[in-house]
Design a binder for these strands. Structure first.
Lengths: 335, 335
DNA sequence: CTGAAAGCGCTTACAG
DNA sequence: CTGAAAGCGCTTACAG
């Protein structure tokens, strides 16, 4: 491999001068600069990122911690990863994937090994043990998710509370007084998955305000089991004909279930849902919904992290992304 | 941050001795080893991965190049990324995501910057310009995909030719003499996406052997457009009632299309498909199929790369993963 | 404006 | 078995 020393020799200057043109942080006369650039070109030189990282104490990489705990809808994650990588590249940063199933260890090792300048955490839960660790080390990080206790860490997320309220309103305005709330499995709420918890709490509150009776019905995230759950729930004449869905698998499986039961939207059932727009695209879901915003959330998360890297002492920021309602024909009528 | 020097001082030994216990490549007497380990524990020391990388010339990270070109079914990629990350971790390696839309630059920069020890390329195409680059630099890499010209680079992939033959056989044995081959958009074949090309070529060859007439019909990868394409194709009475599908979007959209047309499997149509098992799970696709094997392919790719890192001069390996037929009720009858 | 020197935090021959 | 020294490829004060 050719090093900065080779370039210096070729250009007949010192290594520091080469470094100056590399970093662009010092003025170099056009003449010698050109000689150096020619040498770089000729030797096909490119700086060793690791060596630079050691010298500058900046790795120019961001660790993305993905904890594939139960109930996470894996296909939706790709959108976040690509969006994060694209956003990071805008700032010259790369993404390192941190997928150790022991998520605390993933964070501890990443910080200890100094392989990344900062962390972005996906799937944050309430009482997330990783947060105290990050806080203690004062390590730059931003959360995608909004736990109750943020430990002074920057966080960004869709405003799930607003989303739930919007969807309840939509059903209420269509005249529904009873709604079946298709939820994630109970386990997900118990782990304290922040978006699930916030969405549910807000749905309940808004339902109370709108005098809508809300019947909560958990559905599996395993597609086959979800299918069976939904068949049972929807076929049960005792259950409301309006559905509020917050469960990606259920949203995906729902069209097939309705088909099997010979039901049509919005004539036989009214459905509103919260799911990712990408998902809706691929599954051609024709359901009035609020879309989660992987792209917006990811790019905002990177922005916050960059700000944090620039100013470690800035006050912690919390940013909620405003949801928007995506109207389809799945819920205009009264069930 | 605490360094190896702090540990050495604390334990009353030299830095090299600390390093010896860290790397485990030299014998250290149990007594001093214990002192050192105690110091490490007490100071919460952890080696700086970047510094080690510089000293050893091994970064312990693998670059995964993902080129999101048109026609790639994004949700399926997550499975590969997680599988790669898990497999890499088994060997102590991490994954760096390389998503520069300029895929040649992605590879060039990764190699030049020495940020990774090796590369894994997803979505390799025929005449892939990245391959010559890798070959020229003799950089360790393995392809997930099987281009005609492998440039001496290790490669692993599902045996798409065998898969196509299996599926054609299945339809032929059910008595079909005409099959509509639902393909990817023409553009994907033109870019030379190796799996698409190999699958199609083998499907044609096997169809000829089995005296099956194959009508190739491209379908969009955009869900909405795919839906319309399929409605049109399937509703056309001139088209065969047996379908061979190689297009993830089409496979996903198909159930809804059949539903809309009031058609049932296998009574009205026979369908076989090639798509990922993960996809089938999430979409509850009930279609006789050959599954692509993201997990097997990823873990084999990492294994090959590790072998390559250990022995840069080993002859190039090419590994095809044998597909298996996953029988569902979608195609037993004669259409 | 340019260069010599020290340093980033490790590892690895090489002496002893 | 342990330590002093050199080196990995950079950057960055500091002189000049």
């Amino acid at each position: 491999m050719t090093t900065i020393g080779d370039v210096a020799r070729e250009a007949g200057v010192s290594r520091s001068t080469v470094s100056s043109v590399l970093t662009g942080r010092k003025f170099v006369t056009p003449k010698t600069r050109q000689r150096i650039e020619a040498a770089i070109e000729q030797l096909q030189f490119s700086v060793n990122a690791g060596a630079r990282a050691l010298a500058t104490a900046r790795t120019m990489t961001i660790g993305v911690v993905v904890h594939l705990h139960q109930g996470v809808f894996e296909p939706a994650l790709a959108a976040y990863l690509f969006a994060l990588s694209d956003a990071a590249r805008e700032y010259g940063y790369s993404i390192m994937l941190l997928t150790d199933p022991d998520d605390v260890r993933a964070v501890r090792d990443a910080i200890a090994g100094r392989r990344v300048d900062g962390l972005i955490l996906l799937d944050v839960v309430d009482d997330d043990p990783r947060l105290a660790l990050i806080e203690a080390k004062r390590f730059p990080a931003t959360l995608i998710g909004m736990p109750e206790q943020r430990h002074g860490i920057d966080a960004v997320d869709l405003d799930f509370a607003a989303a739930a309220a919007m969807l309840i309103d939509h059903l209420a305005e269509a005249g529904h007084t009873e709604v079946m709330f298709v939820t994630w499995p109970a386990a997900l709420y118990q782990t304290g998955s922040t978006y699930a918890v916030r969405f549910a709490a807000s749905a309940r509150a808004q339902a109370a305000i709108r005098r809508v009776r809300l019947l909560e019905r958990p559905v599996s995230v395993d597609p086959v089991a979800a299918h069976d759950d939904l068949i049972r729930l929807i076929a049960d004449p005792g259950n409301p004909r309006a559905l509020l869905v917050h469960n990606d698998t259920a949203a995906v499986v729902l069209p097939a279930v309705l088909h099997e039961l010979g039901l049509r939207l919005p004539d036989d059932r009214s459905v509103v849902s919260l799911h990712s727009a990408e998902l809706a695209r691929f599954f051609t879901l024709d359901i009035t919904s609020v879309a989660s915003e992987p792209f917006a959330a990811s790019s905002l998360a990177v922005t916050l992290l960059m700000r944090r890297l620039a100013d470690p002492d800035a006050p912690a920021e919390t940013r909620l992304i405003q949801p928007s309602l995506n109207l389809k024909g799945s819920a205009p009528g009264v069930g």
